[in-house]
Design a protein around this nucleic acid. Sequence first.
DNA 1: TTAAAAAAAACGTTTGGTCGGTTTTTGAAA
DNA 2: TTTCAAAAACCGACCAAACGTTTTTTTTAA
Lengths: 203, 203
Amino acid sequence: MVKVKRMSLETLRREEILQAALGVIAEKGRANVTLEDIAKAYGCSKGGITYYYSSKEALFKDVFKYFFDTISQKTQKELDKHLDPLSKMLSFIWFVDEENPQTMLMYPLLFEMMSIAYVNTEYQEAFHEWMKSRSDTVLTIVEEGKNAGIFQVDDAAFAVLTVTAAGHGIITRWYLDRKTYSTEWAKKALQYTVIQLLQVKPA
Amino acid sequence: MVKVKRMSLETLRREEILQAALGVIAEKGRANVTLEDIAKAYGCSKGGITYYYSSKEALFKDVFKYFFDTISQKTQKELDKHLDPLSKMLSFIWFVDEENPQTMLMYPLLFEMMSIAYVNTEYQEAFHEWMKSRSDTVLTIVEEGKNAGIFQVDDAAFAVLTVTAAGHGIITRWYLDRKTYSTEWAKKALQYTVIQLLQVKPA
DNA sequence: TTAAAAAAAACGTTTGGTCGGTTTTTGAAA
DNA sequence: TTTCAAAAACCGACCAAACGTTTTTTTTAA
């Protein structure tokens, strides 16, 4: 971990605290989290937290930034494993992985994000930017597939928004109600929506 | 409003308070709502609220129950306007109606619901039951369409879960980021997902 | 007059932020 | 290498504000 050694102590501590906070939020729900909870989870006192974060709000903002960054990085990492557009589009099933605690932690944050966004313009704006950058990434893939004749859909931009939105709905329901929306279903559904909504050319 | 006259005063007051609470939640976000906010919105004192609701939690629970009921009723009402399965499936665009404040109020509640559900088993269970009943309703329609040869998808149960989940994602993104996910897009996307995911027979 | 309905006041708890103090680390001088 | 003062890191008691709930008081209506 050269990176860690290079970090200033402050940067390191802030990230450690932030990750602890994320865990506590995912466990108790944002509204029920106190500074003491976070301090306890991290293993320090309340003073230790306020030493690195001027306010709870500031800390939470950083948590959400971390949430965005983590998802973007993971997405990119999975995309880079594949070359052809169809495989890339199907790589998004990494979202459906019950065994990966890191991934599972992100869902509560997504829900909290949406709950804040509908009332707070700053978060709403952040959500908008996130969606935009995400769409751009996917659009490149879809257009490439369209040019290659793999995706036969007319309107690539429209299809991108639709297939990503559909994916959003699928993983949301999977996370919240795995009794009805099983893991098996979620994986198949993600695949099915890609095939049907991008109109993948039959083999 | 014969119904209202038949109600006991208590039932009436409870419903009025509940609706006021819903409005305040949608406006300020659940975590930031106090009893005084609700009292002010309703036009009474804090004591007036506690006279009819033993606790804030009890009131909020009723708000979410109201939320479920309202959506179910509205859904049924829209479904009843149509006879053929395809029209019925397309009737769900009532969700996308910026001009209907009643409808728009429901989105914040949906987001709050999900935020509570991931941490509270009681709400999680309620969400599950809601999804189940919703799926059953749609399954009837899809099977009818399948028998009539309108929907050519193989697995009706699978398709139902997928098309409803996709719809969930579409309306969610539409509500939260209308800059990227325009109203026009949302309506087209709902239609498109029905057609593609249920494999509607070409005319 | 009495009981229900509503308001007002009081109460007690929780919690985020502050701040003075304590411990630990750092780095330069001896 | 040791010493030691200054800075950084961290602790935790305390405070004030916010809030849900309970209790008391007032108003309304039958």
